[in-house]
Simulated assay, not measured.
Amino acid sequence: MTPTTQSLRAVDAWKIAVATSIAFVGLIWILGPNLQHFIETLLPDQGASWYFWKLPVRNSTTMLIVWSLYLVHQIGAWVGIYWAQRNLSGNLTNSNLTRYNVFMLSWNLLFMALHLVETQLLFDGLAQDVPIWTSQGSVILMLVFILIIENRRRGLILGKRLDVPLTTRVMGFFRRIHMYIVAWALVYTFWFHPMAVDPQLLSGFIYMFFLFTQMSL
């Protein structure tokens, strides 16, 4: 296989993933009218701590299904990361897709489809059981980890590196575990929201799909 072909494989996978992300958001939009009977029952907004996109009455069976789907998605992502850390250590010298790339792309796409089906049939996401700040907090924690691991390259405060307390040993710890935190923040936030038609939800989901692509490649 030529170097050019190797390079194109990763690029082509990225292009397909981006196109799939856009198409999937289009599918959410097309299927949106099917959710009208759920949306008509939603309670009015009650302030900053209120999450609008959840049904007024909790259904235990629904939430058992949602939590089960989330946990399987989450654990699978962590297993993929663990495998990659054990089997793909060091710098990769070519642009071939690894087993990790193929698994994660397929795994996330599978659960994107399952979440869409779940929303169409049951509507609720994890937001029915957990406060809104947990989704926001998971993303904030992810961003903090990213800032820390980028400290040596880009600096932490006004471009200035912090070598204390962010020593080499501390930085190594954050680098080893940061992907688990990133995967948790993304998958948890993904399952927090239903796949309903709303500008904020749709823009959030396409951004989430792009982040899934980045996590997978």
Results as ranks from 00 to 15, higher is better:
I181T: 12
V187F: 14
G172K: 06
R169M: 01
Y188K: 05
T168N: 14
R175T: 15
M171D: 11
H178Y: 09
P194D: 03
M195Q: 11
P165I: 08
P194C: 04
L166R: 04
A183I: 08
G172A: 09
F190P: 09
V164G: 14
F174W: 05
Y180S: 00
F190T: 09
P194E: 03
M195V: 09
I177P: 04
H178E: 10
A183C: 08
F173C: 01
I181R: 02
T167C: 04
T167P: 12
L166G: 07
W191L: 01
Y180I: 00
T189V: 12
H193D: 08
W184R: 06
A183S: 15
R169L: 07
F192T: 03
L186W: 05
H193T: 06
Y188W: 11
M179C: 12
V182I: 10
T189N: 13
P194V: 01
F192K: 01
V182P: 00
R176S: 06
I181G: 07
V164Y: 14
I181D: 01
R169Q: 10
F173L: 09
L186H: 14
Y188C: 01
F174T: 07
F173R: 04
F173W: 02
W191T: 02
L166V: 03
H193K: 06
T168Q: 14
I181P: 02
A185N: 05
M195T: 12
P165V: 10
P194G: 05
A185C: 03
F190H: 13
V187L: 14
L166C: 08
M171Q: 13
T167A: 05
T189Q: 11
F190V: 09
H178F: 12
W191V: 03
L166I: 12
F174S: 06
P194A: 03
V164L: 15
P194Q: 00
R175P: 13
F174C: 09
I177F: 10
V170S: 08
M179V: 07
R175A: 14
H178M: 03
L186R: 07
Y180G: 00
F190E: 10
Y180A: 00
H178T: 11
I177Y: 11
F173Y: 05
M171E: 10
F190C: 05
V182R: 04
V182C: 06
M171T: 00
A183D: 08
F192L: 02
L166H: 07
M171L: 14
F192I: 02
Y180N: 00
R175V: 14
T189D: 08
M179G: 13
Y188R: 05
V164P: 12
R175S: 10
M179L: 15
R169H: 12
L166A: 00
G172E: 09
V187A: 15
V164K: 14
R175D: 15
A183G: 07
L186I: 08
H178G: 09
F190W: 15
V182L: 13
